[in-house]
Simulated scan of single mutants.
Amino acid sequence: MAVEFVKYHGLGNDFILIDNRHQPEPVWQPEQAMRWCDRNRGIGADGVIFALPAQRDTDYTMRIFNADGSEPEMCGNGIRCLARFLDALESAEGHPPTLPHAYRIHTLGGTITPELQPDGQVKVDMGVPKLLAQDIPTTLVAREQKVIDQMLRVAGQTWEVTGVNIGNPHCVTFVEDVAELPLVTLGPQFEYHPAFPQRVNTEFIQIIGPKHLKMRVWERGAGATLACGTGACAALVAAALTGRCDRTATVELPGGPLQIEWSANNRIYMTGPAERVFQGQVEA
C-alpha cells in the first residue's frame, strides 16, 4: 500500500507527517516508522507524526513514533510541524484558516494548543509544567516532592539536576560550556539511568544571561537532535526555578532559537518556526 507523506522540520528537528484522519490508528507500526526514519536506507527523520481524528473536545489527535520505534507522549517541535501540516491539508480542501488560528490537539501528554501566527511562526500553549517526582517520574526524591537541584551520579561525576514534565519527562542540568560536552557519551547514560523508570530526555544548559539560555539535548528515543521544543520549555522552567534566568527567555539550540515564556498563569508558551521540506510517496 502506498502511503503519502510530507516532511517538515522545526529548527532541524525533522519529522515525517502522515494524514491519518481516515482511521483512528496509525497506518504504520513502530517497525515501519523505524525503517523510514533511517537516514541511510529510508526517508530520514527524528520521528513519524500521524494526524488522526479528534478525541473528545479536540480538533485532531497526534501520535508520534520516535526513530527507535518508541512512542513518546508528545513533541514540542513536532506539534508545531503538525499545525503547519493541518493548515496545508485544510487549505487544500478549500478551508484555509484565518490567522491567527489555534488547533486543540489530543496527545498522550494531554491537550496541546498550537496557534498559527500571521508571521509564519507557531505559538504553542504547552500547558502547566509538572514538577513532582511522581509526575516526571523519578526516584530521586519522594513521590510528592519537587526535583530541584538534586544530586545524580552519572559517568563518574555528580550532576545537579532538576526534573520537569512538559507532557514528557525531562532532566535538566547546568554546565559551563555546552560546546565542550561529550553529548553522545553522556546522553544515553542519563536516558537509561535507573532513577528514571520511563527513561528521560536530558537538557544540558549554559546560562548566557537572564534572558538567554544555550542548550544541547539528548532526546529519549531519538538521541542527539538539533532542537527539542519540550526540552527548551523544561530548560526555562528549571532555570527560573533555580534563580538562573527570568521567566521569559530565548533558548538557543543547535538548530536555532525558540522563544519560551512561563506566564503568570503558570502555563508555558513556546514560539518557533516549522517548515515544509518535501513530499513523497512510499510503499508501506
Rank of each mutant, 00 (worst) to 15 (best):
14 D>N: 06
16 I>M: 06
18 I>A: 11
19 D>L: 08
20 N>M: 05
20 N>Q: 07
21 R>F: 08
23 Q>H: 07
24 P>A: 10
26 P>H: 00
26 P>S: 00
28 W>I: 04
29 Q>N: 06
31 E>D: 13
34 M>K: 15
38 D>E: 07
39 R>F: 04
39 R>A: 06
41 R>D: 10
44 G>C: 02
45 A>E: 05
48 V>G: 03
54 A>V: 08
58 T>I: 08
61 T>W: 01
65 F>W: 09
66 N>D: 06
67 A>T: 05
68 D>T: 00
73 E>T: 01
73 E>D: 10
77 N>I: 02
78 G>N: 04
79 I>C: 11
81 C>E: 13
83 A>W: 10
85 F>T: 04
86 L>W: 04
91 S>F: 03
98 T>H: 14
106 H>Q: 13
107 T>H: 09
110 G>Q: 03
111 T>F: 05
111 T>G: 09
115 E>S: 01
121 Q>D: 12
122 V>Q: 13
122 V>K: 09
130 K>R: 06
132 L>Q: 04
133 A>V: 02
133 A>L: 06
135 D>P: 02
141 V>P: 10
142 A>L: 11
145 Q>E: 14
147 V>R: 10
147 V>K: 10
149 D>Y: 15
150 Q>I: 09
155 A>P: 15
156 G>A: 15
159 W>M: 14
160 E>F: 14
161 V>N: 07
162 T>H: 13
167 G>D: 10
170 H>C: 12
171 C>M: 06
173 T>N: 03
173 T>S: 11
175 V>I: 14
184 V>E: 15
186 L>Q: 01
187 G>K: 01
188 P>L: 05
188 P>C: 03
191 E>D: 08
192 Y>N: 08
196 F>K: 02
198 Q>W: 03
198 Q>E: 12
199 R>T: 02
201 N>R: 00
202 T>P: 07
207 I>G: 07
210 P>L: 10
210 P>Y: 10
210 P>M: 09
219 E>T: 08
220 R>P: 11
223 G>S: 12
224 A>F: 13
226 L>G: 12
227 A>K: 13
236 L>Y: 05
240 A>T: 01
240 A>F: 01
243 G>F: 07
243 G>P: 07
246 D>Y: 04
250 T>K: 02
259 Q>M: 13
261 E>H: 07
270 M>T: 00
270 M>G: 03
271 T>A: 04
279 Q>N: 12
279 Q>R: 14
279 Q>P: 13
282 V>C: 15
282 V>Q: 15
